[in-house]
Amino acid sequence: MSDNSNQNDNSMENKVKSILQDILGLSQNQVDGLDYDSELFGAIPELDSMAVAGLLTEMEESLDIIIDDDDVDAELFETFGTLVSFAKAKANE
């Protein structure tokens, strides 16, 4: 059970990394360097409001989730960890 849950964690982490890479054009090094504490909004200049909008739509398409825009605020993009946790919570709904 815990093995499975770790696998899901890793797989969601990698999916979100891949989406961030696609949308923001981050290098492989930048993406590899992301951990749960890595700051996103304010720390990555490419992440502006247009990019956030694209990111949400791409997350919906790639992760097969529906995001209610009322759930979206700056805290969601505070760190890589908050974004992955949000995606996991939505995927489990």
Partner: peptide, 17 residues
């Protein structure tokens, strides 16, 4: 609808900002 949704979100975020 997907094209519109991204553009609407961007507008919404800008308005909130």
């Amino acid at each position: 609808a997907n094209i519109i949704k991204t553009m609407m979100r961007s507008k919404l975020i800008a308005l909130k900002e």
